[in-house]
Amino acid sequence: MSIKILADSASDLSKKYYNEFNIEMIPLTVQLDGKEYEDGQTINPKTVYNSMRDGKSPKTSQVSASIFKAVFTKYAKAKEPLVYIAFSSELSGTYQTAKMMELEVKEDYPDAPIHIIDTKCASIGCGLVAIHAAKLAQSGASLDEIIDAAKYQAEHMEHIFTVDDLEYLYRGGRVSKTAAFVGTLLKIKPLLHVDNGKLIPLEKIRGSKKVLHRMLEVMQERGTDFQNQTIGISHGDDLEKAELLATMISDKFGVDKDNIVIDMVGAAVGSHAGPGTIALFFSNKPVK
């Protein structure tokens, strides 16, 4: 029996990866200019970034309960195993809504093989977990093997990222107004990571040229076995810088560029991170 992998749009994977690995995607919602859009389906991330450059503040909301119920019911009726690789519960209510709908669906289908994993990951960090699970599913791995591997990958997924303008993090409540103002004046680039699903400041770096080099230093300090894993880079409408980072990683660690996933930060996550964001994702333990 086939095992289906489900991800949400906060995994920031493009349709190419959903199609290649047979991953189903459900969207978070973005509100902009009084209209509501489905992330990854009815709004282009560039539209969000351009609006933010113009001073607008798009809002986001979690995946709706009705979408979860419809998807879970479909797989429950078919008795097809479903593994949902969820966006961090510390950054969205999406995981909690999914769990509520799982319980509701299982009232009618108590044996429904629905499994939900709180990755505590974001953006392509979550996407890499979904890809890994999907590859295992395609190779014929068992349900338990897929769940165990996905949990392992999520637990050991490092997120190292920076933003182009602290103002966007201020709007999202991540830094104080004073910190954003002073940081912008001093051209300070914050380096952040994800710890137990939460965004945590790591250090401050003055000058954008230094920040990519520092990201590689942190990668070397925290990571391992780079040549035998898939590395992720997501960007807020700055493909040139993302590709530069990929080249630096390839040169420094001997990583084949075919093993580096580069994608744009989607509309939902990008509404909080802003244009110019650069994020790096890798495993800190040998990949299972």
Results as ranks from 00 to 15, higher is better:
Val265Ala: 14
Leu212Asn: 07
Val255Phe: 00
Ser250Gly: 13
Gly197Cys: 05
Asp195Leu: 11
Ala150Ile: 12
Gly173Pro: 07
Val261Lys: 07
Gly172Lys: 09
Thr230Glu: 08
Asn196Arg: 10
Thr184Cys: 04
Thr247Leu: 09
Glu243Tyr: 11
Ala154Phe: 12
Ala246Leu: 14
Asp148Gly: 07
Pro190Phe: 01
Ile249Lys: 00
Gly232Glu: 09
Asp164Phe: 11
Tyr152Ile: 08
Tyr170Arg: 13
Asp256Ser: 11
Asp225Thr: 10
Ser176Gly: 15
Val194Gln: 09
Asp225Phe: 00
Arg206Ser: 10
Ala246Phe: 09
Leu245Ile: 13
Ile260Ala: 03
Lys187Leu: 09
Met157Thr: 13
Leu166Gln: 09
Ala242Thr: 03
Asp165Ala: 14
Lys204Arg: 08
Ser176His: 08
Gln227Cys: 10
Gly223Cys: 13
Phe181Ser: 14
Gln229Val: 11
Asp251His: 00
Ile231Asp: 03
Gly172Ile: 09
Asp256Leu: 12
Lys257Thr: 12
Glu221Gln: 13
His156Leu: 13
Arg214Lys: 01
His156Tyr: 01
Lys177Ala: 08
Leu199Ile: 15
Lys257Ser: 04
Gln153Asn: 15
Ile160Phe: 12
Phe161Val: 03
Lys241Arg: 15
Ser250Ile: 03
Asp164His: 12
Leu192Gly: 12
Ile160Asp: 01
Leu212Lys: 13
His193Ile: 10
Tyr168Cys: 07
Thr224His: 01
Phe161Gly: 08
His235Thr: 00
Ile146Gly: 13
Met248Pro: 06
Val194Trp: 14
Asp195Ala: 05
Lys187Thr: 05
Asn196Ala: 14
Thr178Tyr: 09
Met248Tyr: 06
Arg171Gly: 02
Ala154Pro: 13
Lys198Asp: 02
Gly183Asp: 03
Met215Arg: 08
Gln153Gly: 10
Gly232Trp: 04
Gly236Asn: 05
Lys241His: 13
Lys187Trp: 00
Val194Leu: 11
Gly173Ile: 08
Asp237Pro: 06
Glu155Pro: 09
Lys241Gly: 06
